[in-house]
Design a protein around this nucleic acid. Structure first.
Lengths: 330, 330
DNA sequence: CTGAAAGCGCTTACAG
DNA sequence: CTGAAAGCGCTTACAG
């Protein structure tokens, strides 16, 4: 049996309300304060936060739903969020949806049941079910990574990233390009990045590109690269990959096939994962500020929780990091 | 204002207890069932889990305290735990201690306040304060990564890993070795791995090793490697690193200095991070089964929560993965 | 400064 | 099958 505030009150010979006041920093005389302190010390009393929240009608928890925990971008972002939230006195409840959209929906309701104050949802796709849930639970929600006109959203400027990367490789003289993208269900990564790249492509009349679709895993990147290497008598001079993971896969495939990077083939990624710096050659990529995004998302959700205004859409910029994986053909 | 069970009862024209029974799958007539269902549908009612837990006096949450979220081992392990826990109907509450021991203690009390059912603590050091907290909160706790005689512990067989790695490099003919370890405050990584290595070393009379201490970050590994390269007119033939991160740092430093790996210098790690496979050369390391450990920890904590017996100490074995970073000198 | 009382939203015997 | 009542552990006006 656990110790309750009533036990403490009895042992200290005071009323529960006095103990409660003591606990919450209300005014208590020196004498009673000491008695209560002593009893709490002896018993190792720990208040029941359910009961507290039940009365107080609110708590300081923020929930976040991530598609997977074991990805660089997710763990960096969550760490950033956590830091900011803790600094501001909130606790973060992390839910792993394991890349299952229906679990995201479940998680939304779960968090509502727990009367969490606000939710940050790492979005990959925003379905009708998401929208319904967000409306029903009646709790502030921020979408991170995708945008929707009816929900507060924070996105990276994926179009600009794609555009910049396209211009970059072409400025280095590349004209025969393979672009490995991902499913268009992922609007940010699958559509925006590619659209940006396409725009850059359209500005160079003598350039041409072939488009491929890959999964998100490194092994998917390896497979896709292998088919490119196999069915093309003339290799592209560069392969632009929609994520660092895919780029890593391409590098691995090239290594397996004895294709030199750089020298014979160039490769680029998106993401700016730590690994891309330590490998040889270093991967030219676009750096996304995951940790900062986490901090910012935390600040925004706190504002929303406190009914302060927040822009419906926040766009975060990214920047190219030039490393050794791209040949200068000029 | 949120909708409560009383509202539902009113609107459906029944008693709260009937709604509660309905919610918990008790016997309710077809007619009332339908009335209640309808009202819940219309109102979007979501039960308050605080109130539920307050009465039910228990919940199905397991807490885990990790020193940092953004590390490969932590995210893999947590993902494994989460998977298992969810399968068994528990929810995981993750707390990030940001590598601050006092935050671990706080977190222990925080979780107790939330009447969580059990706690898995990723341990790096086990201090008196930890022990006191664990005793006071009176909740089942499992230590992951370190052992203590009074607390349920799960550890990797770090001594054996160190021993195996030592024997491995020496079997490849290496006799002049640099060992980069970490602080001995971390018994598993700092002491056990080194002790194992020392035992292997003692079995080869003609072998010698120099010992260095590094931080856990890749950049620390770079620094340590640089001093080794600088102050030794004769380079060791291999550097055995206590973690993959450090090994990655050494590889980077070697690359900066134009030292060939393999060829001139060999390098090994511990951990089996994904990256170690994609880089060139592939890093010879010891594979730790993080995800499995997570699953196992989850199973154990659930048993403890249900008062089922669990071995006080569980030791998990690891195995060497041979890749290209070690020269065969024979 | 202190205490008695009501109430947060739910569940659980206990009658009927 | 259904309802009235008590109670989970706390907080919060309100008196004193």
């Amino acid at each position: 049996m656990n110790i309750t505030i009533t036990d403490i009150a009895h042992k200290a010979g005071v009323a529960k309300s006095t103990v409660s006041r003591f606990l919450n920093g209300g005014s208590v005389s020196r004498a009673t304060r000491q008695k209560i302190e002593l009893v709490i010390q002896e018993t190792g009393y720990i208040p029941n936060s359910f009961a507290q929240s039940l009365k107080a009608k609110k708590n300081s928890m923020i929930g976040t739903i991530v598609p997977r925990l074991d990805s660089f971008s997710a763990s960096q972002t969550v760490a950033g969020m956590d830091e900011e939230l803790r600094k501001q006195g909130y606790q973060l409840l992390i839910i792993n949806a394991s890349q299952d959209l229906s679990r995201e929906i479940e998680a939304l309701y779960d968090l509502a049941r727990q009367k969490i104050s606000g939710i940050i949802l790492f979005a990959t796709q925003v379905t009708e079910a998401h929208l319904t849930a967000i409306e029903e639970i009646n709790i502030p929600v921020i979408l991170l990574g995708q945008e929707h006109k009816d929900v507060h959203s924070m996105i990276y400027n994926d179009f600009a990233s794609g555009y910049d990367m396209g211009r970059y490789v072409m400025s280095k003289g590349h004209r025969h390009i393979a672009y490995i993208g991902v499913t268009e269900k992922d609007v940010a990564v699958g559509v925006q990045r590619k659209e940006g790249f396409l725009k850059a492509l359209s500005e160079y009349e003598d350039a041409n590109a072939h488009f491929y679709e890959s999964g998100f895993k490194m092994s998917d990147g390896v497979q896709t690269a292998l088919t490119i290497f196999e069915f093309n008598h003339t290799l592209p001079t560069t392969v632009v990959c929609a994520t660092d993971n895919i780029a890593l896969g391409v590098m691995k495939a090239a290594h397996m096939k004895g294709i030199q990077i750089p020298g014979t083939l160039s490769v680029t990624g998106f993401g700016g994962y730590d690994v891309t710096e330590v490998i040889h050659p270093g991967l030219t990529t676009v750096k996304y500020g995951y940790s900062q995004a986490g901090h910012l998302a935390a600040q925004h959700i706190i504002k929303l929780v406190n009914d302060e205004p927040v822009d419906l859409l926040t766009v975060m910029n990214c920047e190219i990091i030039q490393r050794e994986s791209v040949d200068n053909l000029k």
